[in-house]
Nucleic acid binder design. Structure first.
Length: 111
DNA sequence: CGGTTGACCAAGT
DNA sequence: GACTTGGCCAACC
């Protein structure tokens, strides 16, 4: 068996990687929640999703972790300053008022 | 392999 | 409406 015909290592994506991949499908100007991400992955690991975002090693162009908010419509956390997250969202057309997403349900992206 | 840690969630006080 | 509690689940040590 040559290496070309050899099937490459399965390289199972970690839960984190799955989160990143899924999140990368969220279009600009829209947002999603930790809950929706988890559910879209077929699990209830809301917290694990948050952890994944915290450790996110990818640039925001690939994995826009700032587009992830709480399911209540609150801003949620951020690895950097919260004001930065707000600024980025504003830059993409998502208004934030007092730590709350304006028109949250309308901006929400569904998978 | 058991315990710890979260950018969470929902319900209760 | 702020605060506490229990639950949930993957990554890390």
């Amino acid at each position: 068996m040559s290496t070309t015909t050899m099937k490459t290592a399965p390289a199972p994506l970690t839960f984190n990687e799955q989160c990143y991949k899924l999140l990368s499908t969220v279009p600009k100007g829209k947002i999603t929640t930790y809950k929706y991400l988890a559910e879209a992955l077929g699990t209830k690991a809301y917290r694990a999703v948050g952890n994944a975002m915290n450790k996110n090693p990818y640039p925001r162009d690939l994995v826009p972790c700032h587009r992830v908010v709480n399911s209540d419509g609150r801003l949620g956390g951020y690895a950097g300053k919260t004001s930065e997250k707000i600024a980025r969202l504003h830059d993409e057309g998502v208004e934030v008022f007092d730590g709350l997403i304006v028109d949250f349900k309308n901006k929400l992206h569904t998978f």
